[in-house]
């Protein structure tokens, strides 16, 4: 039987908390990319150009049906083959941002579809350009029903950051693994990582629910 050692916990906790910072930065940066790119993908699917719509649709399907881990390797290793060197952080952010942008585009798509036709027609009557219509009329209304879905993927992206450890991003799992191999003790580091994940993702999920309710009430929905 292996015993839990508190002194070892206190010894490694600062390092793990530092890695938690990296994990949060990775999740935040990846999410920022995904939020913007997802909106572009969602709007592109509504364009009148059939070829563009088709290509974007298939791209989203492709990315959503293949593993993120494989996409991270693809971005990291294929660049150098063609002379483009990307750091682990850069390729990690590209892969994770791209992966989640495809999920978010589906969330936005639902939101955009829920905006009533009359809003489009009213915007046209006011002689707005397409960009104005999206920016001032459609997107603000499409975001509200999307808040819950967007929040879920924020938690999702946070829980997927451990995959970045495979290309050497020093996030939580990578650090726990390093601590484990240095000290031949895996019980404390891996258990602590699990607890840190719980301590962040459970309150986050709760906050998202509260925030979603708040936004909906503010906009007079439900």
């Amino acid at each position: 039987m292996f015993e839990w050692k508190w002194e070892f916990v206190w010894e490694i906790l600062p390092r793990l908390l530092q890695a938690t910072g990296n994990t949060l930065i990775a999740a935040g940066a990846g999410y920022a990319i995904a939020l913007v790119l997802g909106l572009i993908l969602a709007i592109a699917q509504r364009s009148p150009y059939r070829v563009l719509t088709f290509v974007v649709r298939e791209f989203v399907e492709f990315v959503r049906s293949t593993p993120l881990l494989l996409q991270i390797f693809f971005v990291f290793y294929v660049g150098p083959q063609f002379g483009v060197r990307l750091s682990p952080w850069a390729s990690g952010m590209i892969a994770i941002g791209l992966h989640y942008s495809c999920y978010l585009s589906e969330v936005y798509r639902g939101g955009l579809d829920s905006v009533p036709r009359g809003q489009w027609e009213a915007a046209t009557t006011l002689n707005m350009t397409t960009v104005q219509k999206y920016r001032r009329i459609i997107i603000p209304q499409a975001i509200v029903p999307s808040v819950a879905g967007m929040g879920n993927y924020l938690v999702g992206i946070f829980k997927d950051t451990p995959m970045l450890s495979v290309i050497g991003v020093a996030e939580l799992i990578h650090t726990a693994n390093a601590i484990g191999t240095e000290n031949y003790r895996f019980l404390e580091p891996f258990t602590l990582v699990g607890l840190i994940f719980l301590a962040i993702s459970l309150p986050a999920a709760g906050l998202i629910k509260v925030f979603d309710g708040l936004v909906r009430r503010k906009m007079g929905l439900k």
Partner: peptide, 24 residues
């Protein structure tokens, strides 16, 4: 449900593979 949805699959996999053997 909360434990398995609140932590990441990678963490669960490592825990099952590296930590459980320590308990025999």
């Amino acid at each position: 449900i909360e434990i398995f949805r609140g932590t990441s699959l990678v963490v669960q996999l490592y825990w099952i593979f590296f930590v459980l053997p320590l308990f025999g």
